[in-house]
Write a protein that binds this DNA or RNA. Structure first.
Length: 492
RNA sequence: GCCGCGUUCGUCUAGGGGUCCAGGACGCCGCCCUUUCACGGCGGUAGCACGGGUUCAAAUCCCGUACGCGGUACCA
């Protein structure tokens, strides 16, 4: 049987970076096995539905280069791929379970259930459940006379369908990542399968869909591990074979705990995929980084394209423990990929960014040189703009940090250099010559290289770091360079 | 509380009983290259949570403890 996996996010907001990794692992697994990657939208909670979330998910996947084989908008033989559009299917299966005495109608109101929990808590039960014991004293089709149940259903009374969880049984399953896992049903409650609004809960929908969509491997986050026994019970109740299960370690925040929006962002980590898109990160860097958060190919390699990752990925190499999101490592990946990309590849994106910032690009050659000069120095593609703005305009202000290098004798030395290069013709105003003049100047003043270099850099760029200086001067041009030096001497 | 899952350098990880006084990567530190900023190269720092077994031999297997994380909803 060919491999079929699904990424099944719920459209309750923008795609979380953890969700993206889950998608990635599913995708890699699918491609590695020549299988099918399905996108399924789990929109069964109408109260949490967020407009645009589904599109955000699709856009995010596309940005990273993951191709969806089946899904909403894409089609496929197992649709529809939105759970809200499959409502009748779940109803049918829920009724089937009731018929087979595997599930039952329950008419209790939320208040009545709360009351029951309160009561049990008071009498010393720390974790009251709607289970094999308590269901006997609740209002459901197991306790109510048959005709009353029918009457209530006919009247359109609100009800839910609950799974009849056996009282004392051990549910065992083999997790592809964790190995043998077992739970006692005693700790489970009679899971609601069908909500009173007619929508299925995640548990029912996911089991029905995974089965009817012929999913072979369920690869999802560890937060689902605890509900897996309910799912296994459901597969058994239907008489279906359960797919293979693989529970991924969670991505943690540097301060510990699940990488939640609030926590992550307070620690400087963007949490939504769209933040990485708008933040101009390299998609292949993010993918590479995410792939290695909880997985490794087992050798000493670090850099792999999506295609290579597909080739390398196997579930048995996924680690079990949670993985802390290491932002600096992401940035390392990002730098790496920027350097790997050629100037030509980078150019359209950099051009757009400059234009966004209202800089006028004099010529294609000019832009090429700017990119070349900065290529090895930027961590993120938008830094071409922040770091390279001075190619386009005089610094508006001087970085206070860089100004520490501006000493009392700086104006004198700088002035000397200025007067030297002023003698140069336009044609002579090129990097090598400019560098020679620097040498001349420092020799005459008997100072070190930095004594001139740093003030010059500050005067021209406003910063203490940046591209190779003399080629930058050449690119900016004689007139403008002289102007900036004069301005700096005057202002500083 | 209860249930479950985890635990190798600060972080991501390699490591399936001897070849491990534990390897790689990020970070950090130093040196080299560069009379600037970087890239790059080289080197260093630092870890098997703890306690008991099993075994000639344990990071590796078993049991406990601690700690962490997850779940415990008509949310997914």
């Amino acid at each position: 049987m060919s491999v079929r996996v699904r990424f099944a996010p719920s459209p309750t907001g923008f795609l979380h970076i953890g969700g993206l990794r889950t998608a990635l692992y599913n995708y890699l697994f699918a491609r590695h096995n020549n299988g099918t990657f399905v996108l399924r939208i789990e929109d069964t909670d109408q109260s949490r539905y967020v407009e645009g979330a589904e599109q955000d998910i699709i856009d995010s996947l596309e940005w990273t280069g993951m191709e969806i084989d089946e899904g909403p908008g894409k089609g496929g033989d197992f649709g529809p791929y939105r759970q809200s559009e499959r409502k009748e299917i779940y109803l049918k299966y829920a009724e089937q379970l009731i018929e087979n005495d595997q599930a039952y109608y329950a008419f209790d109101t939320v208040e009545e259930i709360d009351e029951m929990r309160e009561r049990l808590k008071k009498s010393g039960n720390p974790s009251p459940k709607y289970d094999a014991i308590t269901r006997q004293s609740m209002k459901n089709s197991l306790t109510l006379p048959k005709d009353e149940v029918e009457k209530r259903l006919e009247n359109g009374d609100e009800y839910v369908v609950r799974l009849k969880v056996p009282r004392k049984e051990t549910v065992r399953f083999e997790d592809e990542i964790r190995g043998h896992v077992s739970f006692d049903t005693e700790g489970l409650d009679d899971q609601v399968l069908l909500k009173s609004d007619g929508m299925p809960t995640y548990h029912l929908a996911n089991v029905v869909d995974d089965h009817t969509m012929e999913i072979t491997h369920v690869i999802r986050g560890e937060e689902w591990l605890s509900s897996t026994p309910k799912h296994i019970l459901l597969y058994n109740a239907f008489g279906w074979e359960a797919p293979k299960m693989a529970h991924l370690p969670l991505i943690m925040s540097p301060s510990g705990g699940k990488l939640s929006k609030r926590k992550a962002e307070s620690e400087g980590i963007p949490v939504n995929t769209k933040d990485y898109i708008s933040g101009n990160y390299e998609p292949d860097a993010l993918v590479n980084f995410l792939a290695y958060l909880g997985w490794s190919p087992g050798d000493d390699s670090e850099i792999h394209s999506l295609e290579e990752l597909c080739e390398l990925f196997t579930l048995d190499r996924v680690s079990k423990g949670g993985a802390v999101f290491n932002f600096k490592k992401l940035m390392w990946y990002n730098e790496n990929y920027i350097r790997e990309h050629s100037v030509e590849e980078l150019k359209p994106r950099v051009k757009a960014l400059f234009e966004e910032s209202k800089f006028e690009i004099p010529s294609n050659e000019f832009l090429t040189e700017v990119i070349e000069l900065l290529h090895e120095r930027v961590s993120k593609v938008d830094e071409f703009v922040s770091m390279g703005a001075f190619f386009f305009e005089a610094p508006k202000e001087y970085d206070p940090n860089a100004l520490k290098k501006w000493k009392d004798d700086s104006p004198v030395i700088l002035k000397a250099y200025r007067d030297k290069i002023e003698q140069l013709s336009e044609e002579e105003f090129e990097a090598v010559t400019l560098k020679d003049k620097i040498k001349e100047t420092i020799e005459e003043h008997e100072v070190g290289f930095g004594k001139l270099m740093m003030p010059l850099r500050v005067a021209v760029s406003g910063q203490g770091f940046g591209p190779d200086l003399t080629p930058a001067l050449e690119l900016i041009g004689k007139e403008e360079v002289l102007k900036r030096i004069d301005l700096a001497i005057e202002k500083l």
